[in-house]
Simulated scan of single mutants.
Amino acid sequence: MALLLAVVAAPLAADELRPAVVELTEREAGQWTLEWKLPVAATPGQSAAMLARPVIPNVCTMEGEPVQRAAPLALYGSTRLQCSGALADQSFGLTELLGSADAIARMVPLDGEVQSFRLTAAEPIATIAAAPDRWQVARDYFLIGTEHILLGWDHLLFVIALVLLVGKTWPVVKAATAFTVAHSITLVATTLGYAGLPSRAVEALIALSIVFLAVELAGKLREPDRETWTRRAPWLVAFAFGLLHGFGFAGALAEIGLPQGEIAAALVAFNVGVEAGQLLVIAAVLALLAVINRALPVIEGPAIRAATYGIGIIGSFWMFERVLL
């Protein structure tokens, strides 16, 4: 487990789960712009135009060829459209989503309500509805929040370390809930413009929170009877670090944006999704520990020790990387 964690450490960074964004915006009557951003690394020597092509409504025509550029970690593109007639029941999106990424698609008319859609690698095209679906935003941002925990490695390692440190079901759930409450506070405050920290500092502090839990866990393995603030009140420590992680979540949401008129629903759904993802991780780790304890109790100690040092090494690597580079 420690070797596996060490192997995956290098290419990963904070808040990597940033879905692609595809936005169809009306600039003036009949004039639209389709823009997209795919968080992928372009293949060296491959033309950006070969990576993805826009899918436009049937009632629209492109004014010239799409403009695309490949950056080290993203593909940006845009095209101008001339449209005649209503866009209800029309489709837009991309021919493919690279790397099996998810995407948030938005249709932003001059008059009328914004519509949001969640695209997947299997369904990279959205169909515009005659009237917006109120529940669509909640569903999409709930899934984004869940995926952000399950695929966002720094937050995932923090939750795993917290589970290993606390060990018992209800104390872990309470600590995870305190973590959710805390990051919800800073996420909302940052999104609404009442707070904010530089992203570089936030990412370094998130890595430091992982190292802190790994050190606490290593200390518990050496001296299981020694009491510390973290062991007495894990929910308090989770709450304190949750405030930091909230700034990281805010950075991820800033990349994809929030739907106008549905900001509250999107924020609530995102946070509920994060909590659901955390509970899934907690259940999986506790179940794995229970299986090991019953079937192979002799390896439980060495397995936890290996995981502890693997998590600590990765967190330390991230911390120095984010401070020095």
Rank of each mutant, 00 (worst) to 15 (best):
V59S: 13
I125A: 11
Q82N: 13
L98D: 01
R53G: 12
T146G: 05
G45W: 08
P72W: 01
A121D: 06
G99V: 11
A74I: 12
G145D: 00
T127I: 11
Q82F: 06
I144A: 04
V59L: 12
R69F: 01
T79F: 02
G93P: 01
A41T: 14
T127N: 06
Q115K: 04
D111Y: 01
I149Q: 04
M50N: 14
A86K: 05
A48V: 03
A105D: 05
S84A: 14
A48T: 04
Q46R: 13
L87S: 10
V67C: 00
A41F: 06
A71P: 08
M107E: 00
C60Q: 10
V137C: 10
L97W: 07
A101H: 10
S47F: 02
L110N: 14
M107C: 06
I149E: 03
A138K: 02
Q115E: 08
P57R: 11
Q136K: 03
R139E: 04
V40P: 00
A49E: 03
G145V: 01
V59I: 11
A49M: 05
V108S: 05
I144C: 02
V114M: 12
G64A: 03
G85H: 13
E96S: 14
L94A: 13
S84L: 10
A88H: 07
I128P: 08
E63C: 02
E147A: 05
Q90Y: 04
Q115W: 02
A86W: 02
M50R: 11
D89T: 08
E123T: 12
A49V: 12
G85W: 09
R80H: 06
M62C: 11
L94H: 09
L110P: 07
V59E: 14
P44C: 00
T120H: 10
E113I: 00
T95I: 00
T95R: 06
R139N: 02
T43V: 15
A70M: 03
T79I: 13
A42Q: 02
L94E: 01
A131E: 15
S116T: 15
V137P: 07
A71S: 09
A122R: 15
L75M: 10
Y141Q: 00
S78E: 04
P109D: 04
Q68Y: 03
V114G: 09
L87D: 04
V59R: 08
A42K: 03
F142I: 00
T43K: 11
S100P: 01
V55K: 07
L151D: 07
A126S: 15
V114A: 09
Q68W: 03
S84I: 11
V137K: 11
A121L: 08
G77M: 04
T79E: 13
A130T: 08
A41M: 10
T61A: 15
E65H: 12
S84Y: 09
S116W: 08
R106D: 02
Q68N: 07
M62A: 13
I144Y: 07
H148E: 00
V40G: 06
A88I: 11
D140H: 03
A101P: 02
S91M: 14
P44M: 03
Q46F: 06
R134L: 05
I104K: 05
S100L: 15
Q115T: 01
I128W: 11
I125Y: 11
L110D: 10
R134Q: 14
A103S: 06
G145R: 01
A126H: 06
T127H: 02
L119F: 05
A88Q: 12
A48Y: 00
V137D: 09
E96F: 01
A41E: 09
R134E: 10
V55E: 10
I56T: 14
L151T: 10
P57Y: 15
T95S: 15
V137Q: 14
